[in-house]
Design a binder for these strands. Sequence first.
DNA 1: TTGTACGCGTTATCAA
DNA 2: TTGATAACGCGTACAA
Lengths: 363, 363
Amino acid sequence: MSLPPPRDPDALPGASPPRATIADVAREAGVHASTVSRALNPATRGMVTEAVALRVAAVADRLGWRPSAVAAGLRTRKSRTIGILVPDLINPIFPPILHAVETLLAAQGYATLVANTDNDPAREALLIERMATHLVDGLMLASAAAGTGAISLCARLGIPAVLINRRMPEGAGCAAVSAVTNDDRHGIGLAVDHLVALGHRRIAHLGGPEGVSTATDRLQGFRDRLAQHGLEPAALRPAQAYTREAGRAAMQALLAEPGKGFTAVAVANDMLCLGVYDAMEAAGLRVAADISVTGFNDMPFVDRIHPALTTIRIQHDAMGRQAAEILLAEMADPTRPRQNIRLVPELVIRASTAPPVQEPACR
Amino acid sequence: MSLPPPRDPDALPGASPPRATIADVAREAGVHASTVSRALNPATRGMVTEAVALRVAAVADRLGWRPSAVAAGLRTRKSRTIGILVPDLINPIFPPILHAVETLLAAQGYATLVANTDNDPAREALLIERMATHLVDGLMLASAAAGTGAISLCARLGIPAVLINRRMPEGAGCAAVSAVTNDDRHGIGLAVDHLVALGHRRIAHLGGPEGVSTATDRLQGFRDRLAQHGLEPAALRPAQAYTREAGRAAMQALLAEPGKGFTAVAVANDMLCLGVYDAMEAAGLRVAADISVTGFNDMPFVDRIHPALTTIRIQHDAMGRQAAEILLAEMADPTRPRQNIRLVPELVIRASTAPPVQEPACR
DNA sequence: TTGTACGCGTTATCAA
DNA sequence: TTGATAACGCGTACAA
């Protein structure tokens, strides 16, 4: 029984010490490499004598052997790696989702490959190809804008995929891929109900970028619920992106529209609200006192902005968790029926909403 | 010239279509597989005739061939993958760092493996081992608490590593690994200077969790700068973790300490400040008016909390970018001298600091 | 129950 | 400049 080879003292710092391979373990344990493989692989352990399994495990442990995921992957065409694409890590709704996903996957022995698409379909396609190259076992797309070929690309590459937060437009091959999203129509409806209950009648909508499912659903939900109350939108305006700056610009435009007085604005996303606050401050208007504002997402810390934001709380980590669970299930059984999960959001009332003033602050 | 094999119509949805291999390209182009490899690899392209290179490229393109990173990795022992470990993705200072890292690495053709350690050294070690299994070419550690064996583990595994945001304690093999950190002592000094200039003399410090370099450096810097002003700390208290809840608890304890009146508190981190605000609100104290508060990091949106937080702005993305650059350089040349980069932070004055009241609000 | 033989897709080395 | 061959480390039919 020889000890593991001592590290070469002449080795350059950073030079890899030669790692033990399955052959080393086999030699050391006096069995064949295949037996080592069987003994250490939980799925095939039953094929081997208890005594041999124990001896092999002991040797492997002593040599510090870990099966090379790369070599195994070449053989099995599985990398025990999952990729996740997000449009923009800076947007605070994604870190909680990513956190939930990574935690669940790590517990199942998967590593998580992350990439930013920056909302660029070309970049998205490139990253998906690159991940295919790395043989990812599955892909989670938090970035798929409607109309991009991300889903069909995954299908062509044979990579199981699940959508998070955004979904495909109705009918557009919607049944081909599972999605875990928020019930956006219902959510924005809660905001409308709240504003109407406060007495608002002239309500505007500051929407998300066109072509993104969260934006279209929230817009749709806004119109529908307003109609149920017998009201018409006072004004509608999409932002260019889900960013603070785009929110500021859109709110500025909204305030400048002639003849469109409104006493409240339902905003498609909390991030945009920060820009809305900026624009209102610049225009000398007070949130709540002059115009009520509602957000969407309840992202971290909006309870501490001033005035604290009334918003729609979504289930960030349930979203990540469920999407990861579905993906794993579909990887295990590709014939499994696709799911379209809608998580139910809730209204969180804070200080950015109040009864309307008599005269609309903005006309 | 045959077309690529059409997709088997009987294939199950999700079943991988057989992907073209280098042998397919070779056959199709009428050359040997090694020639294909040489023609498509930028490093060896020069070894091949221009005409052959073009023909091979055309065929590869037509077949949609991409070299398998897994097979190449098995041969070259390089995966074109970098791992990054963060303590907690929910903490908003990490997403910008991660974003910068991923963007730079993606541009160099690297994929980024992300994992959360949740500040658990055992989990950290496990994740490093797992990444080694996946043959990561390098590791970025944003999570290494002083005293954990993460760095020596990387050295043992032969994986180049770089520290981000946190560094090793002085002297503790500090020269063995590069680090890109913030100049924490200088940063907290800026906060002290500002508070002293406002007239504060009884200043407390609410610190980070013990054993973390950012916490010890900020504490040290706090004491030193205070001493330069001829002052003593009015009170000192570490939080259990860099979380809002831990900040609330620590501030509560600080307020309850007998005979320790203070008019200002320099807090080790913005996240903790949210808890400080919570505790002060619960105690009926006003930020700025009763006790001035300074933060650290200038994380997103603290300009919108109420009152807007005076804090120390660090260079998030320069941190990620530089760390990634250093890692790539050390991977290319392991003998390269290690670097210890300190980024210079700046003071951002907002509304959470004001001149002290005559009588300390908390005594 | 264990050993043998081979292949996964690529690149490095050597020979032509 | 190109081709042939081996090897990277592992998993798995098949044979014993």
